[in-house]
Amino acid sequence: MNTNENKNLTLLEQLNRVEASPFLFTRIKQKIAESYPTTYSYKSLRAIGAICFVLLLLNAITTYTALKSNRNENLAEQYHILSQNSIYHE
């Protein structure tokens, strides 16, 4: 390696150390805070999914029961009979 190339490499050794910006840590904290929701998204998604499933199930049960009782009442009305099992009104 000749002196010219050595001179080039010496330039690298002459680089001064630079101070990092004092505001950089605030940005790092912000980036960490932004990264958190994605870290727990799978868990929260599962919880939301489970809640939705329970709500749908409850809704289905309520609708089914309502429909069933409605159907009984309609049938009773058609045949002019009582929809309840009580004969005597107290």
Partner: peptide, 9 residues
């Protein structure tokens, strides 16, 4: 600075 942020995160 962007790399430094990534490193610490």
């Amino acid at each position: 600075e962007e790399i430094t942020q990534d490193v610490f995160v």
